[in-house]
Write a protein that binds this DNA or RNA. Structure first.
Lengths: 356, 356
DNA sequence: GTGAAAGCGCTAACAC
DNA sequence: GTGTTAGCGCTTTCAC
């Protein structure tokens, strides 16, 4: 069927080992045999069977990524970063989306990755209650190196967005703008990511000498729809609310919508900050102040971190200390969070004066 | 290191072939040996090495997906559909993002997939000028089965959105609403997908007895930013424009923004229809009429189609005729496309409370 | 510089 | 029912 090493060897009149040397660019081979072999490879279209190679070397040059919510901006950007870096480092990506069914049988799922001989695993699926409890030395001993995208972990390398910090600077910004009653719409609260952002909101308020009012906490699921619903309810129950930190840009567009429906004018009598850094948020109405995350780069870091461990294990270097890479998100100020006192005027539209 | 078949065999006091039989659930094995073996597998934590298996069987149970623009809604939903269906059918997914670098050396790229022994390839990267010219019988003979996401192709199975139809019904809808000067903002025009949508726009106009005015054609790159720029220019050059078909929802949010900036009121003196079906478009201002695509399902179809071919090849059944699966997108009517004064009171959704 | 032989972990074919 | 043998395509000793 397909051309093998020894096919090439036969045609070139050498042993298969010599061909192997040429293919892998190792050991000394005389210039002329090398060229002869290269020619045969050209004309036969030979390419090595990575299964056979992997079987011998115990390496697949494949990384598994356990992802989720791939249709959302940040997770997909992360995966893109992972793919890019992996490609550059010579690794392929095995993509798995984490599902309830897999959650219920983590062992079987991990085994399936091990069976596929992946060299390492990037675990992007978020921490939900106890779903990461399998990350303990006994289990890890039987698994390839793992990099976690999430909270610091004593046993594996971690790369993470500093969610607490992001929420902190978002809320601080709202406070600085002079908003008084600042609510928060979190992601699903069983996700640690969400509670981290909630903590940031609290800490910002406390450091400003205000006690967070937990009546003003609602949760969504990162969708526009959930943002709209959460905001609607929040405004109904707390008409005095004058600002909200929404911990996702997609939810935020729903929030803006609900605010309009309720007759509020964002940027005038309501301040809104999002979280994510979706490029399209610059075109929301009004343009959304948000926390932008260097998420693509985080994906690259994850691979670098993982590859470092893989190489170390192969060299049987003494075990590395688990690393933590914490990326700092940044505040991007647009109109939605500003407090302007000019009264809206003009036509059917509500004219929002340009920024001072 | 890890437990092998013969390790299990030794501990169970049988031959490795017998263990293999149990693992693969094939052939008759006496109940008691089976149970003994199962017990040993349990306690040793044995799992088969898929490389070794693949080497023998010449199958990897892995599908490659060649994707692109993964941070955009539709491509990522497609991949999610692919992953789900593949998982259910017992296949893993090798994810590759198509890049310029790969485009420049398609042969090497394809070879790398073949080297990884993938059983099939789902080619989602779009057709750009001649980048699909390698899909010819001579090349395909050396490649695993391929399913293309795009235009019908005589040599391989194809799954596709009916882009022409989507654009047709989008433009028809604008015409029916009574808009007179209907422009279009396409995606990158070198993509066949974009020209198909442009064709739909033309055909809708012609069937209404109007000659398409190519002065009203602009192109973006599917981003909000490009949509905003394109719209700004379109309005500057053609102030009489009163409607636009934007062939992407992300671009459309930029269009809505630019329209506001120019003092136009969408849904009143400007009609806008998008294309994609992003859930968040329901919360744009105003909510966006769009063409929704069953894109997740299309991903599933792609896998089904591919697996059918893979199985056929293995059974050495006579070659199947290339199949084409064309999915019909649908019009979702929201406020952005309506001409307020012309609209009969249809339902709460059509009312624009903030206006007038 | 080059080659022969052994073996990675598994399964198919053919014994027994 | 169960075991033996051979071999998938490659690389790694260790010779020559």
């Amino acid at each position: 069927m397909s051309v093998t090493l020894s096919d090439v060897a036969k045609r070139a009149g050498v042993s298969s080992k010599t061909v192997s040397r040429v293919v892998n660019n190792q050991g000394e081979v005389s210039k002329e045999t090398r060229e002869r072999i290269l020619a045969v490879i050209q004309e036969t279209g030979y390419h090595p069977n990575l299964f056979a190679r992997g079987l011998v070397n115990q390496r697949s040059y494949t990384l598994a990524i356990v992802s989720w919510n791939l249709d959302k901006y940040s997770p997909s950007r992360f995966v893109m970063g992972v793919e890019k870096e992996a490609d550059e480092q010579g690794y392929s990506i095995l993509l798995t989306l984490f599902r309830r069914s897999k959650r219920e049988n983590i062992d079987a799922f991990l085994n399936s990755l091990v069976a596929r001989q992946v060299d390492g695993i990037i675990w992007q699926a978020p921490r939900v209650s106890n779903n990461l409890d399998w990350i303990i030395p006994e289990r890890l001993a039987h698994l390839p190196p793992i990099v976690l995208n999430g909270l610091p972990n004593p046993y594996v390398n971690t790369v993470s967005m500093d969610n607490h910090h992001g929420a902190l600077i978002a809320t601080r910004h709202l406070i600085e703008q002079g908003w008084k009653r600042i609510g928060v719409i979190t992601g699903r609260i069983e996700y640690v990511m969400s509670s981290e952002r909630l903590r940031g909101w609290q800490d910002a308020l406390r450091e400003a000498g205000r006690e967070p009012d937990f009546e003003l906490v609602t949760s969504g699921d990162w969708s526009g729809e959930s943002g709209a619903q959460a905001m609607e309810e929040l405004l109904r129950q707390h008409p005095d609310l004058d600002a909200v930190f929404v911990s996702d840009d997609s939810a935020a567009i729903g929030v803006l919508h609900a605010a309009r429906q309720a007759g509020r004018v964002v940027g005038y009598d309501l301040g809104v900050v999002g979280f994510d850094g979706q490029p399209e948020a610059a075109y929301y109405h009004p343009p959304l102040t948000t926390i932008s995350q260097p998420i693509f780069e985080l994906g690259r870091s994850a691979v670098q971190s993982l590859v470092r461990r893989i190489e170390a294990r192969i060299r049987e270097a003494e075990p590395l200390e688990p690393e933590l890479h914490l990326a700092k998100p940044e505040l991007v100020i647009r109109e939605s969070s500003l407090r302007r006192f000019a009264v809206p005027t003009g036509g059917p539209r509500i004219e929002i004066p340009t920024l001072e």
